[in-house]
C-alpha cells in the first residue's frame, strides 16, 4: 500500500500489459479460468486415453467420489479465506462419523437422532477450534494440530479398533440412492457449493470473512467483530466436515476411528487448486468446486489409466506443489507491481 508508483494505465500499450492490468483488476476471474482450463484439459486427456472415462457410469462414480470433497472444500475455502487453516477436519470426520455410527449401528437408534447428533458433534469440534483461535489467539495451525490428535484420540477412545458396518438403508440412500441417475449426495454437495458461493460473496458475514483475511487490522478498525467471524468460520467448517463425513460413511458403508486420515491434505490441495489465496482475503468457492472435481477425476482417471494408488499420491503431491508454487509466484508478482 505504501507504493507510490501508479500502476501504469495500459491504454495504447501492448497486449501483454493490457492482460496484466486486466488480470490485476479481476484476479478472481483469471484464477477461475485457469482452474476451469485445467479441469477441461484433464477431461480431454483422460478421454483420449480411454473413452470409458466419459461413460455415464464413470461420470456418476466421479461425482460420487467428489461429493465429500466438495462439501469439505467449501468449509476449508472459508477458513483459508480468513487466513486460517484447519488440519483437524479428518479427525472431525472421524469423531462425528463415530457418533453417527454408534447411534445407527451399535445402538440401532433412528436416523432422526443420528443426523442431528452427528452435525452437533461436528459443530462442537469446529466451535472448539474457533474458540481457541479467537479467544486465546493461538495460531490456527497449532490449535488444529492439537485438536487433530484430540478428536482422533476421542474417536479411538469411543471405537477402539472396531469397524462398524451395516448402516440402515435409509442412511445409505444418501450415496447409493439415485435421483435422475445421480446420487442424492451429489445434489447435496452442489447445493452446499452454491450456498457457499452466495454466502461468501453476497452476505454481510461472508464479506466480513473476506475482510478479516484480507486485512484483520482494517477490519477491526471498521468495527467488525473479528473474533466472532473466526468463531463462525471454524464452526461452519466443523458442521460441513460432519456433513461430508456422513456422505463418506454412506459411500463406504462403514466407519472406524482411522477413517478420513489425511483428508485435510486433499481438501487444502483442492481449495488451493481452485485459486483461493493462501495469503487470505480471497476465497473462490466455485474454484474449490472445480478443484474437488479435478481431484476426483485424477483419482478415478489414474486408476482407469492403470496407475496404482502410490503413483497417484506422488502425482497429486507433485501437482499440488507445482500449483502452489505457481500461485505464490503470481501473488508476489502482483504485490510488486501494485
Amino acid at each position: 500500500m505504501q507504493a507510490a508508483i501508479d500502476r501504469p494505465d495500459a491504454k495504447g500499450k501492448n497486449l501483454a500489459a493490457y492482460w496484466r492490468q486486466w488480470s490485476g483488476d479481476y484476479p478472481n476471474f483469471t484464477s477461475l479460468a485457469t482452474t476451469a482450463l485445467l479441469l477441461i484439459a484433464l477431461v480431454i486427456i483422460f478421454y483420449l486415453i480411454n473413452e470409458r472415462f466419459l461413460s455415464w457410469r464413470n461420470v456418476v462414480i466421479i461425482l460420487n467420489q467428489g461429493a465429500a470433497y466438495i462439501i469439505l472444500g467449501v468449509g476449508m475455502t472459508f477458513v483459508i479465506t480468513t487466513k486460517g487453516i484447519d488440519l483437524s477436519i479428518g479427525a472431525t470426520v472421524a469423531l462425528s462419523g463415530t457418533v453417527v455410527g454408534l447411534i445407527l449401528v451399535t445402538w440401532k437408534m433412528p436416523l432422526v437422532l443420528a443426523i442431528p447428533a452427528g452435525l452437533a458433534a461436528g459443530a462442537a469440534c469446529g466451535a472448539f477450534n474457533g474458540y481457541c483461535v479467537a479467544r486465546f489467539r493461538v495460531p490456527p495451525l497449532i490449535v488444529t494440530l492439537g485438536t487433530m490428535a484430540l478428536f482422533r484420540g476421542l474417536s479411538y477412545v469411543l471405537l477402539g479398533h472396531q469397524i462398524l458396518f451395516g448402516f440402515p438403508d435409509e442412511f445409505l440412500w444418501l450415496a447409493r440412492g439415485r435421483i435422475l441417475g445421480i446420487a442424492p449426495s451429489v445434489y447435496l454437495a452442489f447445493i452446499i457449493a452454491i450456498w457457499g458461493w452466495y454466502f461468501l460473496n453476497y452476505t454481510r458475514t461472508g464479506q466480513e470473512i473476506i475482510a478479516v483475511g484480507g486485512n484483520e487490522e482494517a477490519a477491526r478498525l471498521a468495527g467488525i467483530d473479528t473474533n466472532r467471524i473466526k468463531f463462525i468460520t471454524y464452526t461452519i467448517m466443523g458442521v460441513l466436515a460432519a456433513v461430508g463425513g456422513m456422505v463418506w460413511l454412506a459411500r463406504v458403508n462403514s466407519v472406524q476411528a482411522a477413517i478420513a486420515y489425511g483428508v485435510e491434505f486433499h481438501t487444502i490441495a483442492l481449495v488451493v487448486l481452485g485459486g483461493t489465496s493462501l495469503f487470505g482475503g480471497r476465497g473462490l468457492v466455485m474454484g474449490s468446486l472445480m478443484g474437488a472435481l479435478i481431484l476426483a477425476i485424477l483419482e478415478n482417471g489414474l486408476v482407469i489409466v492403470g496407475l496404482g494408488s502410490f503413483v497417484q499420491q506422488v502425482l497429486i503431491g507433485l501437482i499440488f506443489i507445482t500449483v502452489v508454487a505457481f500461485r505464490t509466484l503470481q501473488f508476489r508478482e502482483g504485490q510488486v507491481t501494485r
Binding site: 473476506i210 482494517a218 477490519a219 489465496s277
Partner: peptide, 15 residues
C-alpha cells in the same frame, strides 16, 4: 485502513 484485496465499494461499506 483498507482491505487491499477488496474493491472500493466493499471498502467504503466495510463493516
Amino acid at each position: 485502513g483498507l482491505v487491499e484485496v477488496m474493491d472500493a465499494p466493499a471498502n467504503l461499506f466495510l463493516g
